[in-house]
């Protein structure tokens, strides 16, 4: 019975959805990382007017319905939208109906996870160490690269893994922004949705769902392990 359930796993369609999910989520998280580093560091260390607003905007994707995020992406990055139109005209590049659009959706939606982890990691570093580094001749970028980054790296990795895992499960924004195209934008959740639309797809959906749950668990365990490593590294 159980062996029947897993027979022929993964099927070509399942494999395609799995690899596509990894590609989209991976590229999305990596693309967002540099901005997440600056934002996370800034929220941890800088005081500036409008900080509360920046914090709110960063966390918005956690609160807003993903469909609304997809809609917002569509009206900014669609081919007739201001940014999307400009990209198409200048570089012949478009996000809509492309996996890059799905990656953009993942980048935006998982941004709060990354920023939050980086911010916590930076806040765990004694600012006195940065003063000491400055006195020893290290400029701001030097201090960031040789002090903040190495001390925060386990936290940064934990954040990236959480964001990546969350990105694997993104549905609403992707389907709204870049539609459900097999081999292009049909990630695991979209594949589950598709098989459920056809009669007798329950078994296929169960297999994909089990795969999703396993990946999510693995991701969370890995993130937790990296977080603990971060604490040890800071001597906490």
């Amino acid at each position: 019975m159980l062996s029947d359930f897993f027979s022929g796993f993964p099927s070509p369609a399942e494999w395609e959805a799995l690899t596509l999910s990894f590609k989209i989520s991976g590229v999305g998280v990596l693309a967002a990382l540099p901005l997440a580093l600056v934002t996370g560091y800034g929220l941890a260390r800088w005081r500036f007017p409008g900080k509360a607003l920046v914090e709110a905007v960063v966390h918005l994707p956690l609160i807003l319905p993903p469909v609304v995020m997809g809609y917002l992406l569509l009206i900014s990055f669609g081919t007739k939208a201001p940014i999307g139109g400009w990209l198409l005209e200048t570089f012949g590049f478009r996000f809509v109906f492309s996996w890059t659009g799905a990656a953009l959706a993942v980048a935006v939606l998982s941004f709060p996870f990354q920023v939050r982890a980086i911010r916590l990691a930076v806040e765990g570093i004694d600012p006195a160490l940065e003063e000491a580094a400055a006195i020893l001749g290290a400029g701001a970028l030097d201090r960031f690269l040789t002090l903040i980054l190495p001390l925060a790296i386990p936290g940064i990795l934990a954040g990236a893994v959480t964001a990546f895992t969350a990105g694997l499960g993104e549905f609403g924004a992707i389907i709204t922004f870049v539609s459900n195209i097999p081999g292009e934008t049909r990630t695991l959740p979209l594949a589950i949705y598709s098989v459920l639309q056809s009669p007798g797809g329950e078994l296929a959906a169960a297999r994909l769902a089990l795969l999703s749950i396993t990946l999510a668990l693995l991701g969370l365990v890995l993130a937790e392990a990296l977080g603990r490593r971060a604490q040890r590294r800071l001597g906490l």
Binding site: D126, A128, E131, A133, A134, G137, L147, P150, L151, L234
Partner: peptide, 19 residues
């Protein structure tokens, strides 16, 4: 700026870099 002053400062706490 402090990183170009070339003034040595030793603190109460050693502030050694843990990594």
């Amino acid at each position: 700026p402090p990183h170009r002053r070339r003034i040595g400062l030793m603190f109460q706490d050693s502030r050694l870099f843990p990594h």
